[in-house]
């Protein structure tokens, strides 16, 4: 399969295959992304996150349908956790998006979180680039907002929508710690349920504490399954985007996320090369043994690793 030609000609198989190659850390994929990098930057990227059961997939589904009515092409990357024990995963977000499946202007991809090392945000970041090159106008990244790695992923987005739902009890507390801050727009889903008002108030109170005056994230009440207020939510997302553009914050955010991306790739490459090197020389194990004996300390060990790496690269 000629992936490049396919990707540029709107062939979904090519697009899908390239994302797989990225996930599998194939060298060919990196080369292709290098080549086509200049073509990125046309898509708006929207992160959708929130606690389990908040209805994130339904929200994504409805927003995507709204955008399709406006003739926009939509890419969706839905991330679900990989089992740390078996390496397997059940990726079930498509269930809520069944009727988008066959829409030629929509591309949906499910990803497992797979290994550690920020590998996922790297892969998700690259997948966003692929969909961008593929010509998508909007790209959604949907993850469960429970852990740092998920937070890292949605940070790639131009706008992060935090989907909340009444009646989560303690979960809201858990979400608050360090994760609520990344929300640019808050959606209170299932807002016809008891406790919706309280949830909205709790969010407002939190926003009172956390932010200065420049931009205050709006809180939108929605009922995603009934398509209720989805247009309002989209409006809030657009407003945020506009604010970011006008205030110059967009550039700052882009700059920051690029910086993070470069450092991530760098870290990843360093660790990868050390691991590769160690496969032949056992250098890491040797250093571990030395540190165990107290004949060396971990700080010196790390420096020595770095030296080893440099010596092979020069």
């Amino acid at each position: 399969m000629d992936i490049k030609a396919g990707l540029l000609n709107g062939d979904k198989r090519a697009c899908a295959r390239l994302i797989s190659l990225i996930e599998n850390e194939d060298a060919q994929a990196v080369e292709l992304l290098k080549e086509l990098y200049s073509m990125t930057g046309n898509a708006r990227v929207i992160g959708i996150t929130g606690p389990p059961g908040a209805g994130k997939s339904t929200v994504t589904d409805k927003l995507a349908k709204l955008l399709r009515k406006r003739n926009k092409k939509v890419g969706i990357i839905a991330v679900d956790p990989t089992s740390p024990f078996t390496g397997g995963a059940i990726l079930g977000d498509r269930v809520r998006m069944s009727d988008l499946n066959t829409d030629p202007g929509v591309f949906i991809r499910s990803m497992g979180t797979r290994g550690a090392l920020g590998g996922l945000s790297k892969a998700a970041n690259a997948a966003v680039k692929v969909l961008d090159i593929f010509g998508m106008d909007y790209i959604f990244i949907e993850t469960v907002g429970v852990g740092q790695s998920e937070v890292d992923i949605v940070k790639l987005a131009d706008t992060v929508v935090m989907v909340m739902v009444p009646g989560l009890g303690d979960d809201i507390q858990a979400i608050k710690a360090g994760i609520m801050e990344i929300g640019d727009v808050f959606a209170v889903n299932k807002s016809d349920r008891d406790g919706a008002e309280r949830t909205a108030t709790e969010i407002e109170v939190m926003l009172d504490f956390n932010r200065g005056a420049a931009y205050r994230p709006p809180v939108v009440n929605i009922i995603a399954k009934d398509n209720n207020n989805i247009d309002k939510l989209m409006e809030a997302i657009d407003d945020h985007y506009e604010y970011m553009q006008n205030s110059g914050n967009y550039k700052i955010r882009k700059r920051n996320s690029l910086k993070t991306e470069i450092i991530d790739i760098f870290k990843y490459n360093v660790v990868k090369s050390i691991e590769q090197k160690s496969e032949n020389t056992n250098i890491i194990d040797q250093l571990v043994e030395l540190a165990l004996d107290k004949s060396i300390d971990p700080y010196t060990a790390a420096l020595r690793l770095l030296k080893e790496l440099r010596s092979t690269e020069s």
Binding site: T58, I90, G92, V95, R96, K225, D226
Partner: peptide
């Protein structure tokens, strides 16, 4: 009335 959307938890 619209249609029911199933909840899948595996």
């Amino acid at each position: 009335f619209g249609e029911y959307q199933q909840t899948v938890i595996l």
